[in-house]
Simulated scan of single mutants.
Amino acid sequence: MSILEIDHINTYYGGIHALRGITLDVNQGEIVTLIGSNGAGKSTTLKSVSGLVKVKSGSIKFKNQDITNKPAHETTLLGMAHVPEGRRIFSNLTVKENLLMGAFSVKKKNVIEERIERVYDYFPILKERLNQKGGTMSGGEQQMLAIGRALMMKPEVLMLDEPSMGLAPIIVEKIFNIIDQLNQDGMTILLVEQNAYQALSIANRGYVIQNGEIVLSGKGHDLIENDEIREAYLA
């Protein structure tokens, strides 16, 4: 059952046609990854879904509800969390303050505390750094914090944009293990990632985007074995 449906969307940056009829879907409980070269349109796809950029034509449905061009805060309240490229944590706030910002619409203190503890279950290092300012943390710790902040809304779909960017291989492996665990615990995930092998290794399905268009799709393990994909993204 599709929880997210993107149907022939076209998105522009001024006169630049960034997305050209993108169509993809994400079923409940899946990890779906979108791979492609830098500038292919991966991040723009996520921004179009979450309402950070306007779609000129086409439609986006979340849980059968049309969310095309809804403001980002509204898509968040509907149950979709977007962890942007570059993490975008609040550098001058502590770890706990960053997490509290992720629960901006939650009113009950006991619910907030339960969700914080749940985040700590996934990312024990954040509990150790509770009062540390986000800007003084390592890149990997900041990525964990960015994901943890998104989890504070208890989303039904988690969109991750380049979670491995700039991280050491050992930290990348740890981040992907956590993404896999989140999925095993019931989280639906749409993953944008340049590290194609890592992404396809944990994904149920994948889409390949080039110049704003989907050019190939299939099961994650099938795409890993595809000769064109191996030459272009896995060499």
Rank of each mutant, 00 (worst) to 15 (best):
V215E: 08
E113M: 10
G79N: 11
G41P: 03
A18N: 08
Q210L: 13
M137W: 00
A40K: 04
F104N: 13
E97L: 12
P124S: 12
G166S: 09
R87Q: 07
L77Y: 04
V26A: 06
A103D: 05
M1C: 11
H82G: 03
H221A: 12
V111W: 02
D185M: 03
A72W: 00
G86F: 04
Y120T: 03
I16Q: 13
S2F: 13
I189D: 07
E173D: 15
E193W: 05
I170N: 14
N204V: 00
F62W: 12
D121N: 14
R205H: 14
F90K: 01
S59T: 15
I3F: 06
T75S: 11
I16Y: 13
H73Y: 15
G218A: 09
N195Y: 03
Q181H: 09
K47C: 02
A72Y: 01
I179A: 00
E114G: 09
I112C: 09
V32D: 06
N38M: 07
N204G: 02
L234G: 11
K63F: 04
K56W: 04
E113G: 00
Q132F: 09
I178E: 01
I116K: 01
G15T: 13
S138Q: 11
D121Y: 11
L167C: 06
G206A: 06
Y120M: 03
I3Q: 02
M80F: 12
A196L: 07
L167D: 08
I31D: 03
K219L: 14
R87H: 09
L191V: 12
G14K: 09
P169V: 10
A196S: 14
Q142H: 12
N183E: 06
Q143Y: 10
Q184E: 14
I189P: 03
G140F: 01
G135A: 12
N226Q: 10
T94F: 12
N211D: 14
G166V: 09
K42C: 09
G212F: 06
I224P: 09
L151D: 05
H17R: 12
E117Q: 15
M152K: 01
G186L: 02
G15V: 04
G140L: 05
D25H: 14
M165S: 14
V111F: 05
P169Y: 12
A196Y: 05
A199G: 08
G220K: 02
G36W: 05
G218W: 07
R149V: 02
V208A: 05
V208Q: 03
P84G: 05
G218K: 09
G14I: 07
N92K: 15
T136D: 12
G58R: 01
E231Y: 10
V172Q: 08
T76H: 05
L34P: 01
T75M: 02
E128H: 10
V208S: 06
I67W: 10
S217G: 08
T44P: 03
Q181R: 15
L216Q: 08
S43N: 05
G148I: 02
P71S: 09
I175A: 05
L182N: 04
K54Y: 09
R87N: 07
I214L: 11
V215C: 07
K47W: 01
G134M: 06
E173L: 08
M1P: 13
L4H: 07
G212W: 04
K70Y: 15
Q184L: 13
I89V: 15
Y197F: 15
F123N: 00
M152R: 00
E74W: 01
S164R: 07
